[in-house]
Amino acid sequence: MTTHDPMDREELEVDSTRYETEIPRRSLRPFPGLPDRREVRAFIPGTIVEVRAREGERVSPGQVLLLLDAMKMHNEVCSEIQGRVRSVMVRRGDRVEKNQILVSLEECQ
């Protein structure tokens, strides 16, 4: 591939045959990797109304870590894994952005 400009002609090799073609920018986006379930993130911007998770505490899947006020709701933000709370990155009253890491967990039985 020569350029990332979507309007430029490029060459694509399929089964050792080269095809001249156009490649839309969207298909050039790299795969970002699977989400890391140890990082608990905000699904939407909002305000932290309650922090239940304490550092060092053991948690299990479905356990509520904190409450996030957004979309007319106090949303329960839960752990998806069996593990331990490594650090709590927010405090009550904090405004958080979308995708911001709220709690970091480590896996353990």
Partner: peptide, 8 residues
């Protein structure tokens, strides 16, 4: 389901 993503 209000419990997940506020039920959006």
């Amino acid at each position: 389901q209000p419990r997940v993503l506020a039920g959006v």
